[in-house]
């Protein structure tokens, strides 16, 4: 466990040693801020809790931030180690592949949560803005944040997996972006479409899950889906890393 935190801390501090954390943070807060402004404007016109939560957690701006930020956070984690050869140093140390993968994932997830933390101020900002806004739907917003954490963990696991296959950060980011783009596209399959693939697509589409979270619904099925899917992708990453010794 001590070694896990050791690697985790190195990875987290590496974000801040380079421009990565600042560039990603700037992009994220710009997009999230615009999404908040948009949600607030819509909420002022039609003041229902659904309008506000959906504007925050289901808008195009929300998905743009999720789609771009998660590959940016994960792209460096293995690709850079592959490029510089430092992965060999880690593999020669008495550290299991599971510890390496989980520590790297935890570092990216920590930064993801850190990026979202300033957006908690949005609610307090509105509360003190005056009487023109109705009461903040805190339950809906809390469920939205919970869903965001689940979706973010899954997206980061996919992007981390992509990072393992290449020596180039940009290639890792593009692969992650492509994989997550396909996942998001599942949400655009019409609800009335029939067939097994349509059912699978609808069940796996993050956009549909976030509609529930943004409506204040924490569905156990969604929870199980994200926890198990994230665990599966991380497991695959560990196995691919283990297979490096055999290659």
């Amino acid at each position: 466990m001590k070694i896990f935190f050791h690697i985790w801390w190195r990875e987290v501090s590496a974000y801040f040693r380079t421009s990565m954390a600042y560039v990603t943070g700037f992009f994220f807060l710009a997009v999230a801020g615009f999404g908040f402004w948009n949600a607030t404007a819509r909420w002022a016109q039609a003041p229902s809790p659904g309008h506000f939560a959906n504007g925050l957690f289901g808008s195009v701006w929300y998905w743009l931030a999720m789609l771009v930020v998660t590959p940016l956070l994960a792209m460096r984690l293995f690709a850079e180690e592959n490029r510089t050869g430092t992965l060999e140093t880690l593999l020669a140390a008495p550290v299991t592949e599971t510890t390496i993968v989980l520590a790297k994932f935890a570092s990216a997830f920590s930064l993801f949560l850190l990026l979202w933390a300033p957006t908690l101020a949005y609610g307090f900002l509105l509360r003190h803005c005056g009487a023109q806004y109705p009461a903040m739907p805190w339950g809906w917003v809390a469920a939205g944040y919970f869903g965001t954490a689940l979706v973010g963990a899954f997206f980061l696991a996919i992007a981390l997996f992509c990072s393992l296959w290449t020596r180039h950060q940009m290639a890792a980011a593009m692969a992650g972006l492509g994989a997550l783009g396909i996942l998001l596209a599942l949400g655009f399959i019409p609800v009335h479409a029939s067939g097994i693939w349509s059912c699978v697509a609808q069940a796996a589409a993050p956009t549909r899950h976030m509609q529930d979270f943004a409506a204040g619904i924490v569905d156990t099925r969604h929870l199980i889906w994200y926890v198990s899917a994230t665990a599966l992708v991380l497991f695959m990453t560990i196995r691919v890393l283990e297979a490096r010794r055999l290659r």
Binding site: A14, T86, T89
Partner: peptide
Amino acid sequence: SETAPLYLEMRVGEYLTFRGGLYG
């Protein structure tokens, strides 16, 4: 290893502390 790979963004002392930590 042949290329002596290092984390270039770290300071020498920090890197050695990190490596020591990996070995407990």
